[in-house]
């Protein structure tokens, strides 16, 4: 008897539709967010994350409406990320029915915002999203840095130190994406995931690179993550969440079935 490791399908949303790109290009349409969220709920998803990838004012309203609609039909935790920059943005999403928000670039431009958000709403609803890329070359000790703008812009910030700083500011959880692996289907960056998970006490959600069920298991057993996030293996019918959980259980991982 203990806490189950979580599987979190991720829906990238663009103007009210679920999309999925390979390293943020070649975006493919993957359906109506409410329908997709309901399908994952029925398959036993432990949570659902929405990432709003375009954030014009008009699209934001579409996202808020979508969150409202999903929250009245799906009774598992919902996280919304993308363009969360102010306390008011967070309040809007929580009022629409989100349980958590993911803060990404706003944390980098203004770390005090993370603390303000946690003080206002509680750590339980503040997820800090970290996009990390390996910067060390072969033969050097591993080192990862934070990148912004979908992995195109470097910040020079060390990923492990950043995760520790976010924990100290009150973040309740870290959503860790390897920008080297995102969209490649070659598996998580397990060394990165493990380095961060072992360095902090709050839960880490591993993200970026899942192409088969075994990758999800590795994120837990080798990456020491508390939760694993994936998109395309679920969106296009390659696997159900149920199959993913059965695969994890077969590896001795505790799951909610």
């Amino acid at each position: 008897m203990s806490l189950a490791k979580r599987i979190i399908p991720c829906l990238d949303v663009d103007n009210g539709r679920v999309v999925k790109g390979v390293q943020f290009v070649n975006i493919r349409d993957a359906g109506n967010p409410v329908e997709v969220a309901k399908r994952y709920d029925e398959q036993g998803a432990d949570e659902i994350t929405f990432l709003d990838i375009t954030a014009t004012a008009h699209d934001r309203n579409t996202t808020v409406q979508m969150v409202e609609e999903v929250a009245s039909q799906v009774f598992i935790p919902l996280t919304v990320g993308g363009g969360i920059r102010t306390v008011e943005d967070i309040r809007t999403m929580l009022n629409a029915g989100a349980d958590k928000v993911a803060i990404n670039s706003a944390a980098i431009f203004n770390p005090a915002f993370v603390q303000e958000a946690c003080d206002t709403f509680g750590s339980q609803c503040i997820v800090v999203a970290i996009d990390a890329k390996k910067v060390s070359t072969e033969g050097e000790p591993n080192r990862w840095e934070i990148f912004t703008h979908g992995g195109r812009k470097e910040t020079g910030i060390d990923a492990i130190e950043w995760a520790q700083k976010m924990e100290s500011l009150g973040a309740g959880e870290i959503l860790l994406t390897s920008m080297d692996r995102d969209g490649t289907k070659s598996g998580f960056d397990l060394k990165l995931t493990r380095a961060i998970s072992d360095a902090i006490n709050i839960p880490v959600i591993a993200s970026g690179g899942v192409g088969e069920l075994d990758h999800l298991c590795q994120g837990i057993t080798e990456g020491h993550a508390e939760a694993v996030l994936a998109a395309s293996i679920f969106h296009f019918g390659q696997h159900t969440v149920q199959e993913a959980k059965e695969a994890m259980q077969a590896k001795g991982i505790e799951v909610r079935l």
Partner: peptide, 12 residues
């Protein structure tokens, strides 16, 4: 040391 706080997720 391997257990995380907050206690976050699905437990029995």
């Amino acid at each position: 040391p391997s257990l995380k706080v907050p206690h976050m997720g699905w437990n029995q």
